[in-house]
Amino acid sequence: MTYKAILNGKTLKGETTTEAVDAATAEKVFKQYANDNGVDGEWTYDDATKTFTVTE
């Protein structure tokens, strides 16, 4: 399944996708990606669109 992350960081804005077996696995991948890029904020998840959003 393909999951998407939308990054609304102070220094990084954009989107990325990952293939994962479930939302929990995708969330770990996206949170690591955000952390590696200095983005730390509030996370939300929309199951209907399989989209995570982080906003700083």
Rank of each mutant, 00 (worst) to 15 (best):
K13Q: 13
V54R: 01
M1S: 13
V39G: 03
A23W: 14
K50V: 03
A23K: 13
E42N: 10
M1F: 15
G9F: 14
V21L: 12
A5P: 04
E15A: 09
Y3A: 02
T2K: 10
E56L: 06
Y33P: 00
L12F: 15
E56G: 05
A48S: 12
T55K: 07
D22W: 02
G14M: 15
T17A: 08
T2C: 13
T17K: 08
N37G: 05
V39F: 14
T11G: 12
A26R: 00
Q32R: 10
T51D: 00
T51L: 04
K31C: 06
V54N: 03
E42I: 14
Q32T: 08
L7C: 06
Y33V: 05
L12D: 05
Y3N: 03
G38Q: 07
T16D: 03
E15I: 11
I6S: 04
L7H: 03
T18F: 13
L12H: 14
T51S: 05
E19N: 13
A48L: 11
D22P: 00
K28P: 03
L7T: 03
V21A: 13
E56T: 06
K50G: 05
T11R: 10
T18Y: 11
T18M: 09
V29F: 15
E56W: 12
E15G: 05
M1V: 13
G9C: 13
Y45M: 00
Y45Q: 00
A5H: 04
G38L: 06
A24W: 09
D22A: 03
E27Y: 15
E27V: 07
K13N: 08
E27M: 14
W43I: 04
F30R: 00
W43Q: 00
Y3R: 00
K50P: 02
K50T: 02
A20T: 05
E15R: 05
E42K: 10
K10F: 12
N35H: 14
V54K: 00
E19L: 14
T44F: 10
N8S: 07
F30L: 06
K50S: 05
F30A: 01
M1G: 13
T49Q: 07
D40S: 13
F52R: 00
A20S: 07
G14V: 14
A20I: 01
D40A: 11
A24F: 10
A23C: 13
A34G: 03
T2I: 14
K31E: 04
